[in-house]
Every structure is written in structure tokens, then in C-alpha cells.
């Protein structure tokens, strides 16, 4: 008690520590068997560890297995990875291009239909994606977007754009118009103000919104599955077919699960760089809304 009166912060209780450690184990430990499985060649029931490993059989098998298979052109992992990243980048660019003006208006203007506009922007997040996806499939068949890259990109925009707009709106709300005002009174023209004042101030917000759109796109399964008609593979659709067909500790599926986690890992590293905080996902929509509610 005395320590606290001197302003020493409470330390987490023993129960809290044990709980956190258990949770950490629960969320990190499942990656371990996948790493082991990805290097296994033979891991039959009821062995707790593989009896043969990838490096034991390299010279014996006529076909590449495990990682060798995944990294060979036969698996088409490379094209699925490239598709995922390319589609994600285009989705991010389009979400920014259409999202920035909308977010600017939502942050800077008050108008009668604003509540309606904000509600409308929430809908694509809560309306079942499968409902949108099947209707979209039928529409896209008619206009020639079915089984095309532009079709997949447009499909991904539906969940990505509302999230991007929410992040961008919060960014514009935090941007003090006073800076631009000062630049104008100092004689800066529109272009100079944009280049030297506004852009540097919003760069981090733009990057965060773009990253989110990219992340959402790389994680989408169902819309890609429906619109690609099985012709264009991304990482999630490839993983889907492997989980559906592989056994419980299949080396290829295990390796693929790890590969599919890579865009997310990159996201975390880059997002931390941009915001410099340990909780960069704090810019997630629900979080930012929670703050406004205070």
C-alpha cells in the first residue's frame, strides 16, 4: 500500500501474468507443428514427430516434395503469390483514389445526408459477403468481368473501400486546417500548399489506409473464389483447395499455411514503421469509432 501512495504503478497480478502467458502459448504454439510438418516427408499416425524428413528423401523421390514442391514452378505458388500482391496493390491504389475525396468531404463538411452516407459506408462491412458475391458473379458474367483480373480487383474494392474511407476520414479530422491557412497567408499557392504542407501531414494516414486496403484484399477468399471461376489463383484460394484435399499434417498444406501468413507479417512490420507504435491496428475502424464515442 505504501508503495502505491508514493506513486508506484500497480504491477500486473500473478493471475494476469499466467493468463497472458497461456494466451501467448495458445496463439503462437500452433505455428510450431506447421513448421515441423512443412519439413516432414513421412509423418504417419501415431508418431509425434516425422519419421522421415524432407532432406532424407531429396535424392530418392523423382518428384519434388514439401518445400521443394511448393517452391518449384509445378505448384504455381509463385503465380498465386504474384496475383495476390498485384491485386492487393491495385485495390489499395483504387481505394485511395476513390476514398480520399469522399473522406475529405466527410471530415470537413457538415451536410444533411451525412448520417446516411456514413451508414451506407458501414453496410458493405456487415452485409454477408456471400450475398454480394453471388449477385456480383451474375452481373460480372453479363459484362465480361467474370474470370478476369479487373473483376477480382473490383470485387475486392467492396470490403476494402469502406475501411479505407474510415481511416482516411479520421486522418482528415485530425489534420488541423490552420496549417494550410498559415501557408496561404504566407503566399503559398494551391500546388505549393499541397506539396509542402498537406501531403507531408497526411502521408502516414494515406499509407495506413493503403496498407489496410492491401491487407483486406490479400485476405479475401470467397469473393475471389466466386469471381475467379477457378481460373485465377490467389494465396487464400490455393490454401483452400489444399486444406480441402490434404491430410491433417500434410507437408505441402503446412508450408502453404506459413506462406499465406507472409503478407500479414509484412503488414505488421511496415505498419509499425509508419505509426511507430506497438498498436498500429489501433487505427482499425471500430477502435477509432470507439474513441469518437467518448
Amino acid at each position: 500500500m505504501r508503495q502505491e501512495l508514493h506513486g508506484m504503478p500497480d504491477r500486473p497480478s500473478a493471475a494476469a501474468r499466467v493468463f497472458v502467458i497461456l494466451m501467448f502459448a495458445a496463439f503462437v504454439a500452433p505455428f510450431v507443428p506447421l513448421v515441423v510438418a512443412s519439413f516432414s516427408f513421412r509423418w504417419h499416425w501415431p508418431d509425434l514427430l516425422p519419421t522421415r524428413w524432407l532432406w532424407n528423401v531429396r535424392d530418392e523421390t523423382p518428384f519434388p516434395v514439401g518445400w521443394d514442391y511448393l517452391l518449384s514452378p509445378v505448384s504455381r505458388l509463385g503465380s498465386a503469390f504474384a496475383n495476390t500482391v498485384a491485386i492487393g496493390l491495385v485495390v489499395a491504389a483504387l481505394a485511395l483514389m476513390t476514398g480520399v475525396p469522399a473522406a475529405y468531404v466527410l471530415a470537413r463538411y457538415d451536410f444533411r445526408a451525412k448520417g446516411v452516407a456514413e451508414f451506407f459506408l458501414l453496410l458493405p462491412i456487415i452485409v454477408p459477403q456471400v450475398s454480394i458475391g453471388i449477385g456480383m458473379l451474375l452481373l460480372f458474367m453479363r459484362v465480361g468481368l467474370f474470370r478476369t483480373y479487373p473483376g477480382i480487383v473490383l470485387a475486392h474494392l467492396v470490403p476494402a473501400l469502406p475501411y479505407a474511407i474510415r481511416i482516411l476520414t479520421a486522418m482528415f479530422q485530425n489534420l488541423d486546417p490552420g496549417y494550410e491557412e498559415v501557408a496561404r497567408t504566407l503566399g503559398a499557392d494551391r500546388l505549393a500548399r499541397l506539396r509542402h504542407v498537406t501531403l507531408p501531414l497526411i502521408a502516414a494516414g494515406l499509407a495506413t489506409a493503403g496498407l489496410f486496403a492491401f491487407l483486406i484484399s490479400t485476405n479475401i477468399f470467397l469473393l475471389t473464389f466466386l469471381i475467379s471461376g477457378g481460373r485465377i489463383a490467389t494465396l487464400p484460394t490455393m490454401l483452400f483447395s489444399h486444406i480441402g484435399s490434404g491430410g491433417p499434417l500434410d507437408a505441402t498444406t503446412a508450408g502453404l499455411v506459413l506462406i499465406v501468413s507472409v503478407p500479414g507479417l509484412l503488414f505488421l512490420f511496415i505498419a509499425d514503421r509508419i505509426t511507430g507504435s506497438g498498436l498500429s491496428l489501433a487505427t482499425a475502424p471500430a477502435g477509432s469509432r470507439a474513441k469518437e464515442d467518448r
Partner: peptide, 14 residues
């Protein structure tokens, strides 16, 4: 930040 399918892969393995 990873797809739900990653969790599915883990659930199957475990």
C-alpha cells in the same frame, strides 16, 4: 492479419 484459412489449417493439424 492473416486469412481465416490459416486458422483452419492449424485446427486441422491439431
Amino acid at each position: 492479419v492473416v486469412p481465416y484459412l490459416v486458422g483452419a489449417g492449424m485446427v486441422v493439424a491439431l
